[in-house]
C-alpha cells in the first residue's frame, strides 16, 4: 500500500506533503491534550508496537498470509490524534530507513494511511459505539466495521489523489475498481484482526482502550460487589449507598461465619448476597 516515488507527479506530491504536515502539526497538539507530558514515551512505544505488529503474519490459506496495517487499531486503542501521530512516525521511519514508500510520496502516504485511514476508522467507531447498546460485544463489532471501512476508504482517497496527479495512463474507473476491490478483501482481514486484538485488550485492561472510555462499569466500594457474581448485570449504580449499607452487615456475618466454619461461612455469604 506504500506509494513509491514517481507514481504521483511533483505538484500533487508537494501539496499532499503540505496537507500531511498540517495534519501532523494538528495531531501533535491534539496528542498533547490526550497525553500531556507522557506524549513522547507513550506515542513512541505505541508507534513501536504498530511497527512490530505489522510483522506479525496472519496465515490465510495455501501459503498466503496478511498482516495488520494498524491505523484503525491505533485509533481505537490510543485515540485519533495519537493514532495519526503514531502511523505518521511509522511511515516516516519506514521511508527514511527501509526505503518502504518513496520520500517524495511520504506526504501522500501519510495523508492516505495516517489521516484518511485513522480518521475514517475513528469516526465509524465512535458513531457505532454511540448507536449500539453499551456492551463489550458492540465494541468488538464497532472495531471490526471501523477497520473494515477504513481500508477501502484509503483506497478511494488514493484514487482521488491519482485523479489529480497520477503519472500512469490507466482509466480512473479501472483504478477505482481494482483498488477498492482488492482493499475490500484486505479490509475484511484487517477488520477481523483489529476486532480480535481490541477484544483481547478489553478483556484484560479495558481502561487502556481509548475508544471504550465511559463504557466500563464504575467501581463500587462494597463488600457485596466483591462477593456477588463477577459481572453484575445492572447498568449504573443509582442505589450504591443503599447496597453499601446492606453489604456492610452481610460482610460482617460472612466474616464471622468464616471464622467458625470456613466452608459453610463462605457459602452462606454468597447466598445472602445472591
Amino acid at each position: 500500500m506504500h506509494v513509491p516515488d514517481g507514481f504521483i507527479d511533483t505538484p500533487v506530491s508537494v501539496a499532499a506533503g503540505a496537507v500531511a504536515a498540517g495534519a501532523v502539526a494538528a495531531s501533535l497538539r491534539g496528542a498533547r491534550r490526550e497525553l500531556d507530558d507522557r506524549t513522547a514515551p507513550l506515542a513512541g512505544l505505541v508507534a513501536a508496537f504498530v511497527f512490530a505488529v505489522q510483522m506479525l503474519n496472519f496465515p490465510v490459506a495455501a501459503g498466503t498470509s496478511g498482516h495488520l496495517l494498524g491505523g484503525a487499531l491505533a485509533a481505537i486503542l490510543v485515540g485519533p490524534w495519537t493514532g495519526v501521530l503514531c502511523i505518521s512516525v511509522v511511515l516516516l521511519m519506514q521511508a527514511v530507513l527501509f526505503a518502504d514508500g518513496g520520500l517524495t510520496a511520504l506526504g501522500v502516504n501519510i495523508t492516505l494511511m495516517g489521516v484518511v485511514g485513522v480518521t475514517v476508522a475513528y469516526a465509524v467507531f465512535r458513531g457505532l459505539v454511540r448507536l449500539l447498546p453499551r456492551a463489550r460485544g458492540s465494541v468488538t463489532a464497532a472495531s471490526f466495521l471501523a477497520a473494515f471501512v477504513s481500508v477501502p476508504a484509503a483506497a478511494v482517497a488514493f484514487t482521488g489523489i491519482y485523479a489529480l496527479g497520477g503519472t500512469a495512463d490507466v482509466s480512473l474507473g479501472k483504478v477505482l475498481t481494482a483498488m477498492v476491490g482488492v482493499h475490500t478483501l484486505i479490509g475484511v482481514g484487517e477488520g477481523v484482526i483489529t476486532a480480535l486484538t481490541v477484544g483481547a485488550v478489553i478483556a484484560v485492561r479495558p481502561d487502556l482502550v481509548y475508544g471504550a472510555r465511559g463504557l466500563t462499569q464504575p467501581l463500587r466500594l462494597s463488600a457485596a460487589a466483591a462477593a456477588a457474581p463477577a459481572r453484575p448485570g445492572g447498568n449504573g449504580n443509582p442505589g450504591a449507598p443503599g447496597t453499601t449499607g446492606a453489604s456492610g452487615t452481610t460482610g460482617t456475618t460472612g466474616i464471622t461465619g468464616a471464622a467458625g466454619t470456613p466452608g459453610t461461612g463462605a457459602r452462606s455469604s454468597k447466598e445472602t448476597n445472591a
Binding site: 514515551p41 507513550l42 505505541v46 512490530a52 487499531l73 486484538t197
Partner: peptide, 20 residues
C-alpha cells in the same frame, strides 16, 4: 494471534508508562 497482538499492545503501553 489476535490475543498475542493484544498482549503485545498492553506490554508496550505499560513499558511506555514505566519509561515515562
Amino acid at each position: 494471534l489476535g490475543k498475542t497482538a493484544g498482549a503485545l499492545f498492553i506490554r508496550s503501553y505499560e513499558r511506555g508508562e514505566r519509561v515515562h
